[in-house]
Design a protein around this nucleic acid. Structure first.
Lengths: 253, 253
DNA sequence: CGACCTTTTGAACGTATTCAACCGATGTGG
DNA sequence: CCACATCGGTTGAATACGTTCAAAAGGTCG
């Protein structure tokens, strides 16, 4: 496992092992339901905590990794929001997802040995570093971890298929409604208000994700506002009629 | 491993174990570079062949699995073409991919324990059945298999991101050009002509995949034909200027 | 051969984009 | 502290791209 030490360019001020170990204890992390297997016995839990090699702070606008960087680790978001993007040969950028605490980043790097896309912090963020060699090693010994890893990878594929559905066969207003409902659901899972939240991304980033131009996104927000479905004030959104948004999806072909 | 026997509803005329074992020998399958780990020693290869529990024939138009079917197996295509689709609550269908021999189907089922989408044969097909419990079991003991599985899952995610790029930020003609180039590349990898092939899917299915209507797809085929980039005759396509198609991607905005 | 499905093509239409102007919030330097 | 630049967001008007509706031709399969 000597690979571990070559794996990450950790920020200089990363904590010494002793201090770190306490700080990152997964067993007491309030995100553990999101990123760890359930029903783990204490022994396995202790082994699993060894996976978390370090944490990385990433400032707003900076990247956790870039496309092409050589792949060594997965990351679990501890705090903050990320966007992931891919870049066309001709320079166009496509946002492939928005990720929040407890979610896993970097799975696109396993196959080719280098990350396929970029992961950029939308605000100051912190992420747990999971050296993938360790993850693979331990998941051979802890079936629950193996299973969990496979599930997370599979769920990412399912998520992607949902995005394809959105991009391939929904109208603009359906896309934005879906987006808002999805955000609401994920905030709810994390104990935040389902109806009242702060968008970390710009209109342009939302547009890129949804396959729309920023002006279209802005107009849709205004329209939803006029229809009393939501209140919008810059980045703050309050959902007034969640069933009104859902109705947009069911209706008109 | 008693689970194995409950796993698949194999077609009645599936072969007896003895005959089957010879027939499906992975070590002599000409698709092995596509679906197996490289550099496997003979012992591991022999163990790995035990994974292939059976083969399933699927007739054109029939499904290898449906969305919601409980998940037990991955499938490797031995012959024929499949499309995968997801269905909206309101009934719209989105084609999420086209799959050809050597490619893996069913990865969307791992996370939830049931398949998320449908896999439908575009012609008479045959697929190898890989009971996932066996795959997980063996991949704990054969690191090369474990690695291979992770790579395949990751590559599927990368593929999906490519489709998002296509759907989210390309114009119609770029989408179709990308689609044709992609098909060409995959045929080449399988030893077929890069420029001369038979589309197994309808214009409507292509359209669904590319986020376009079938009429638009048809018009684009005609336009590419007029521009002497391709020849089209119903389902038969011949690419005349591969760099002409590539140029469509680099150009205008 | 006849029924049905797929494909092609045309014309009118509509949705989202483009281009442009303006506003408000935020941040910087004189 | 205010002037100014910058960035993100909103809104309007013209445009363009892809869709819709429709008709007809070509293939395929019983």
């Amino acid at each position: 496992m000597s690979a571990v030490y070559a794996i990450e360019n950790v920020t200089p001020k990363s904590h010494a092992p002793a201090a770190r170990k306490f700080e990152v204890a997964c067993s007491t992390c309030n995100l553990r339901e999101l990123c760890l297997p359930k029903d783990l016995d204490p022994v396995d839990m202790a082994r699993l905590e060894q996976i978390v090699y370090a944490r990385r702070k990433v400032r707003r606008g900076e990247a956790l990794f870039h496309a092409g960087d050589s792949f060594h680790s997965l990351y679990v978001i501890r705090s903050g929001f990320f966007k992931t993007t891919v870049l066309n040969p001709d320079g166009r950028e496509q946002v492939t997802g928005f990720y929040m605490p407890g979610e896993l980043l970097g799975m696109d790097g396993i196959g080719a040995g280098s990350y396929h896309g970029n992961a950029v912090a939308l605000e100051d963020c912190e992420a747990c570093v999971l050296p993938f060699a360790l993850v693979e090693h331990l998941s051979r010994e802890i079936p629950a971890l193996q299973r969990h890893l496979h599930c997370v990878l599979s769920r990412e594929i399912v998520r992607d298929h949902g995005v394809m559905m959105l991009l391939g066969s929904m109208r603009a207003e359906e896309r934005l409604a879906t987006f808002l409902l999805q955000l609401s659901r994920r905030f709810t899972n994390r104990g935040y208000s389902p109806s009242d939240f702060h968008l970390r991304m710009t209109r342009e980033e939302i547009g890129s994700f949804l396959g729309l131009k920023l002006e279209t996104v802005s107009r849709l927000f205004s329209r939803f506002h006029e229809d009393n479905l939501i209140e919008v004030n810059q980045k703050h959104v309050r959902i007034l009629k969640i069933d009104g948004l859902e109705a947009l999806l069911a209706s008109k072909h």
